[in-house]
Amino acid sequence: MKRFGVQIPQVFIIVFLVLMVVLALGFEIPMNWIISDALVRLVMNGVLVLSLVPMLKAGIGINFGLPVGIVAGLLGLCISVNLRMKGLWGLSAGMLFSVPVAILLGYGYGAILNRVKGKEEITATFVGFSFIPLMNFFWTIAPFSNPAMLWPIGGKGMRPVIGLKSYFAKALNHLWMVEVMGVKIPVGLLLFFALLCLLLFVFFRTNFGRAMTAVGENEQFARLAGVNVARVRTWAIILSTMIAALGICVYAQSYGFIELYDAPLMMAFPAASAILVGGSMGRHTHIAHVVIGTFLFQTTYLISGPIANEMMLPEVAEIFRLMITNAIILYALLYEGGKRHDVG
């Protein structure tokens, strides 16, 4: 277990989770419902969490600028909906359209982050924050024509929430759904996630992937070995942006809605928190951290809702979620900082 670095956040979240499962049993919330939903939520958010890995490995830090990638994905989805594509094809088309957008945005985003070495996280946060109102501009004047996406009155400007019911909502969720003992297992969805994880794992075994890891660990060493550090970092950022774009596609189909405008603003923080719960510490990040972290984190999210409802305090769930999210990130910052301070 030491390999996965069991730290206070993990212990805390596991204890919290066990407590809530006990409470859930007490309130007679059905267990099979929890497990099926937990599996869906794992993938729904897991891809977004996975998108943090390349940048972490390349030593750029947590991608607090996740909205940049998310916006690329949203754009792809919107194009797909505008073409009225349905089912899995619609979703795949959305993903396909979002990739070139992600590469383009990632390139620009990378150029910015390469200028601010050592201050990437704070800069990424504000690049992400300022990108959202910029895109809001775009959403209001975007030349889309499918009335399902536009304001019903006036017919101009995108709706903040676009229902996907008649397009590709749950297209991937329902693929090869198997029911075992009352638990619905979304096999297709899980396979898709596994495939993405495997691809990323294989990528880090290639020469280029190794160079990326080396840049994260020791930039000067990599430079001396003839690696173009700026180029590798840019590609790590593009890769993160691309996976984030795919991530929002999976998220949106699972959720059943495309959320535009300010919705992506704060999405980076739960994702960051999830990977930290998994045991990621800076560049020491494995794919396993993503899976474990997302599962623990999202399951806590999931159970806390109905429990709070049972206790007649629905806001508490949300407050607790935010508090846990930020407490975990803060702990990670302090712990890593403390370690570095001791060495230096």
């Binding site: 607090f64 050592g118 201050k119 996280e121 704070i122 946060t125 930020n326 990130i329 803060l330 910052l333 302090l334 900082g337 403390g338 301070h341």
Partner: peptide, 12 residues
């Protein structure tokens, strides 16, 4: 404890 990463820490 977090020299050089103060700003992101203060946000959190």
């Amino acid at each position: 404890r977090v020299k050089n990463r103060e700003m992101i820490t203060t946000i959190i």
